[in-house]
Every structure is written in structure tokens, then in C-alpha cells.
Design a protein around this nucleic acid. Structure first.
Length: 439
DNA sequence: TCTGGGGTCCTTCAGCTC
DNA sequence: TCTGGAGCTGAAGGACCC
């Protein structure tokens, strides 16, 4: 028995999804864009594995002294808990909340199953993250039915095959479909007919628009603009002055439901980065350099695994007071070599001259990515033919065979086996192993 | 209250070339 | 030969998203 025969989501479509109206017009005519969003995805994956927790307030997130909530069940949200909230605060709001550490290998596996369902429906799938995607179903209508019917089929299949629920927005444009799926949550479906987009949008608060965060909302509030309708009736010049040319013009278009962006399969990534918040602030430059080495190795391994190399190496430093600075340098040629990334990152860090400033976080980033097949290597006269790149590829093979951390730079090995920073274990670090398939 | 981690995109500014 | 402006690129920071 499919889920649709058992129960339906609380918020259904605004019209019967399959029957045309008297004039032969169907509400989802001209609405080929679907936005599918899993409900409390990480938490739902955990409940699938541990059904005895169903109905309890539960959150997923880092349980360290500085962790934040990554996902919360709807029971937990009733206590005011939401994602990105510090764990300490979440526990104060709901002392009995069940806390689980994230298992990204599980979420990646469930996500792959869900995306396979989407691609079974249409080849035009644009994933936004592990738990949501846009689909253009115009090519599937003849085979599967109108968009709202396809949306119901997807919801049934996700439930039956993956054991989790999702919400779907159906609309003529991407951003309206996304708003619709949000309004349909949890476990619902909402169609916004093409001729009712403006009526749907204008009563909404501006903060619901995609791209309007805390700062933009404040800037709009200073102009007295609180709803999308207010925004729509404001001269574009005023918005451009307040928000800049790109954001101002973009929001003016969105406020009237105009969004020319098509659903497209994603291109290659543009950057790869890793960062780490120390359990306690660090003021020892040697500890920071060791962390930069670890992060550089990790970024390089991910680049090699994905078949990328990058030309620009950047470091990020966050001080104890949360101010953050970045420094970057573009190399003569792209690299996927950890030692080269580390050397550059270390030089950038040393050039800051921080002495014993207290640092909360450091990060390493590589951008300007190209396929590693386009990697050209010019050997210096005194450079051996077999160098760091070959050595690190050998490490990749050893890691694949014996597991992460089986081969490490000696500096990281000694750190892990004695003088860990701040008294915390250093290698292998729990957070380093949280996410599956990184290297 | 006290703020993770991995990304993308935009803006501003400075330096360089033509 | 010098100068100013346009256009490009790199660097840095910020806002936003999930």
C-alpha cells in the first residue's frame, strides 16, 4: 500500500491536482518547476534507523562545547529550537531533548536514493544540497501526467522507498516553487498557479524571499518595507541604492514573480575548503601551523578524489572575538598537492604576523578549479621526477586500502600521539571522520 | 545566547595594461 | 614621453544558503 493510500500531507494542493476546471484549464498548467525538500532531513534519516525515537524532541548536531544544531525534529522545534542554534541553548530550551551526532555517510546514502528517484522522473534535476532539488518536469508530463500528479508520485516514492517524507512546491519559476515547498511543510504539496503568483507573493514577509537574510531584511525595514508587496511597489532605483545593483534589481524582479533562471544540472564545483573550530581558543602558532597542514592535506585529498586542481590558495582566520579575515594567493599553475597548498597557506598565515593572538578557527581553501587532466607540470632542473604529488597519490591508495589516518605526515603523527592541542585528542579527530567520502 | 562547516555570489578596491 | 580613462584581474570581505 502506498503512502497516499494511507494518509496525505496536512496541506494539500490548492485545487484538485488532476481534474481540469470547467474551462479546461488546470491549476498546474504552465507550472513545470518542482522544488522537492526533505522534511527535517538529517533527523528523519536518524528516525528511520531508530524508530523508537519517533514523537520525541530530537536534534542532530555536534555535541562539543561549541557545536550548533544541524537538524531538529518538529517536536524539538515546538520548544523554539532551530538549526544553527548553539547546542547549549537548545538544551536549555528543552532539557530532555535527544541529541545525536551527525552521520553524514548515512545522509549521503539516503540522498543518493532520493536523487535517483528524481532522475527516474526527469533528467533535468538541479540538486541544491543533500536534501533538496529543483526538477523541470515539462518533458515528463506526457508520460506521467500533469506536474502536480508527478509531485504526488515523487512524494509517494520517497516515502515508500526511502522511509522519509518530503514537501513539494509546484510553480512556474524556481523561486516560487521553493517558497511553495516551504509553505507546504511538513509532508505537503502546494501548487501556485501561474496566474496567482502575485497574489501568493505579495502578502509574504520580505524575509521569505530567497536571498533576503538578516542584513537585507534590516536594510529593507529601514525603508519601511516589510512585505513582498511593499517591495514590489518600491522604485527599483531605491532598492538599488539600498542593496546594490545586483541584489536591488534581482529582488525587484522576484517581487513580481519574475525569475528567468532555468533548472540546470550543476556545473563543476568552484572551490573546495575545510575549516575547523578549535575546542578552545589557540594562541600557539605551531599548533595553528599543524592544523593548517592537516586541513591542507584534507583539501588536497578531496581535490584529487574529485579530479580537480586549483590555482588560488586561501586561508581563513577567525579570532576569539569572532572577527574573521581571509588571505589568498594565486599560484603560477593549479595544484592538488597537499604540501604545496600547506606551504602557501603557511606563508599567508605567517605574513599576518599574529604573534600570540587567540584564534577560534582556521581554514584552508582552494579555488579557481580546473580538471586535474588539465594539470601541466613543469619540472625544475633540480626537481625529482617522482615528487610530492606521486607520494600523496600513494597515500590516497594506502588510505583507500587501510582506512583514513593510516598514513599521515610525521608532524601530525607526533601531535596525535602526545602533545595534542588544548588537551583534546588530535588524530584521528572525530570531526575529521564525521563526513563520509571526503577523500 | 554565543554563534559549525561547506559552499556561492556580490561588492569594493587596488594594480596592471592598453 | 606623459597622462587619464576603461577594462580586466586578483584580493579581501560580507551576505546568504543549507
Amino acid at each position: 500500500m502506498s503512502r497516499s493510500q494511507i494518509t496525505r500531507g496536512a496541506r494539500m494542493t490548492q485545487a484538485d491536482v488532476s481534474a481540469p476546471t470547467a474551462d479546461g484549464h488546470r491549476d498546474d498548467d504552465g507550472c513545470p518547476v518542482l522544488h522537492v525538500d526533505m522534511d527535517a532531513f538529517y533527523a528523519s534519516c536518524e528516525l528511520r534507523r531508530r524508530p523508537e525515537l519517533a514523537g520525541l524532541p530530537m536534534i542532530v548536531g555536534g555535541d562539543g562545547s561549541r557545536g550548533v544544531v544541524t537538524a531538529a525534529t518538529y517536536e524539538a522545534r515546538r520548544y523554539g529550537i532551530h538549526s544553527a542554534m548553539p547546542m547549549s541553548r537548545a538544551k536549555r530550551l528543552c532539557p530532555q531533548v535527544v541529541v545525536l551526532a551527525p552521520d553524514f555517510a548515512l545522509y549521503t546514502e539516503v540522498s543518493a536514493g532520493v536523487m535517483a528517484i528524481f532522475r527516474d522522473v526527469t533528467p533535468v534535476v538541479e540538486p541544491l544540497s543533500l536534501d533538496e532539488a529543483f526538477l523541470d518536469v515539462s518533458g515528463a508530463i506526457r508520460r506521467l501526467g500533469p506536474p502536480a500528479v508527478i509531485a504526488e508520485q515523487i512524494r509517494d516514492r520517497v516515502h515508500d522507498e526511502q522511509g522519509i517524507t518530503c514537501s513539494v512546491g509546484v510553480a512556474s519559476t524556481k523561486f516560487v516553487a521553493k517558497l511553495a515547498s516551504t509553505r507546504a511543510k511538513p509532508d505537503g504539496l502546494l501548487v501556485v498557479p501561474a496566474d496567482r503568483v502575485v497574489a501568493f507573493l505579495h502578502p509574504l514577509p520580505v524575509a521569505q524571499l530567497w536571498g533576503v537574510g538578516e542584513k537585507t531584511e534590516e536594510a529593507l525595514a529601514r525603508l519601511g518595507l516589510r512585505t513582498v508587496g511593499d517591495l514590489a511597489h518600491t522604485p527599483v532605483d531605491t532598492l538599488v541604492r539600498a542593496l546594490g545593483p545586483a541584489a536591488g534589481a534581482h529582488l525587484a524582479e522576484l517581487a513580481w514573480g519574475r525569475d528567468p533562471r532555468r533548472v540546470v544540472a550543476p556545473e563543476r564545483e568552484k572551490s573546495v575548503s575545510n575549516e575547523e573550530t578549535f575546542p578552545r581558543d589557540v594562541d600557539d602558532p605551531e599548533v595553528v601551523r599543524r592544523e593548517l597542514l592537516r586541513l591542507a592535506e584534507k583539501v588536497a585529498a578531496r581535490l584529487r578524489a574529485a579530479g580537480y586542481a586549483g590555482r588560488t590558495v586561501g586561508v581563513k582566520v577567525r579570532f576569539a572575538d569572532f572577527t574573521t579575515i581571509t588571505r589568498s594567493r594565486t599560484l603560477a599553475s593549479p595544484t592538488d598537492v597537499g604540501q604545496e597548498i600547506y606551504t602557501t597557506a603557511r606563508e599567508l598565515y605567517d605574513a599576518l604576523g599574529l604573534q600570540r593572538a587567540r584564534l577560534r578557527l582556521v581554514g584552508v581553501k582552494v579555488e579557481g578549479l580546473v580538471g586535474s587532466d588539465r594539470l601541466t607540470r613543469q619540472l625544475a632542473l633540480d626537481e625529482p621526477e617522482v615528487g610530492w604529488r606521486e607520494a600523496e597519490q600513494a597515500v590516497d591508495r594506502a588510505t583507500a586500502r587501510f582506512g583514513r589516518g593510516s598514513v599521515r605526515p610525521a608532524r601530525l603523527l607526533s601531535a596525535g600521539e602526545g602533545e595534542g592541542w588544548g588537551g583534546a585528542p588530535v588524530a584521528p579527530r572525530p570531526s575529521a571522520d564525521r563526513r563520509g567520502g571526503e577523500a
